[in-house]
C-alpha cells in the first residue's frame, strides 16, 4: 500500500506543453530535493493510429521527441498538460513554484496542494487489475501497461 501521509502537488499550466518546455520544466523541478514520485499527464499521442480509417499506420507527429531528464531518456506518450508530484515533505514547494514561474512565462499555471494519487486500491481497481504488485504505480498509470516507471537518481 502506498504511504498516505506524503504531501502531493498538482501543476496545471493553461496550455499544453511542447516537449521542449516540458523538458526544461521537469529538469528544473527535479533539481530540487525531496521528490518521491512524479507523473506527467495529458492527452495521449500514440505512435500507431489506434482507430479510424488510418488505423495501424504510424502516427507521424513532428513535435514528438524523447526528452532527457536527469540523464534518463523518457519517451513522451502524452502531450504534457498536468504534472503530479509526491514529495517527502512540504519544504520544496516554494522552490517548485519558482521553477514553474521561470519556465511558464507566456501563460498562467496553477499549483495546488492536495491528494492527487490514489493511496489504496478501489473495488474497481481490483476488478480491473487484480492485485497490483508494484505499489509505486498505484493510481498513477495502468498497471497492465508494459512500460515500467523510470527510476531517477536522487540528488540528496
Amino acid at each position: 500500500m502506498a504511504e498516505t501521509s506524503y504531501p502531493q502537488i498538482r501543476i496545471v499550466p493553461a496550455r499544453f506543453l511542447t516537449p521542449d518546455t516540458a523538458e526544461t520544466l521537469i529538469n528544473k523541478i527535479l533539481s530540487t530535493t525531496g521528490i518521491r514520485r512524479i507523473v506527467l499527464n495529458g492527452p495521449r499521442v500514440p505512435e500507431i493510429v489506434p482507430y479510424g480509417p488510418a488505423r495501424g499506420t504510424p502516427n507521424v507527429v513532428a513535435q514528438r521527441r524523447e526528452i532527457e531528464v536527469m540523464g534518463e531518456t523518457i519517451k513522451l506518450q502524452v502531450q504534457v498538460g498536468t504534472i503530479l508530484i509526491e514529495l517527502e515533505d512540504e519544504t520544496p514547494i516554494p522552490e517548485i513554484r519558482k521553477a514553474c514561474e521561470t519556465v511558464l512565462t507566456n501563460f498562467p499555471f496553477t499549483l495546488q496542494e492536495g491528494r492527487f494519487m490514489r493511496s489504496s486500491m478501489t473495488m474497481t481497481d481490483y476488478a480491473k487489475y487484480g492485485i497490483v504488485e508494484d505499489e509505486r504505480i498505484l493510481g498513477i498509470v495502468d498497471p497492465k501497461s508494459k512500460t515500467r516507471p523510470i527510476i531517477l537518481q536522487g540528488n540528496k
Partner: peptide, 18 residues
C-alpha cells in the same frame, strides 16, 4: 478529440494525429 481541451503552447487545438 480536442475541442474541449486546453490549447497547445502555440495556440493550436489538440489533435492526437496532428
Amino acid at each position: 478529440h480536442g475541442h474541449s481541451l486546453r490549447l497547445a503552447e502555440d495556440g493550436m487545438m489538440f489533435d492526437m494525429l496532428q
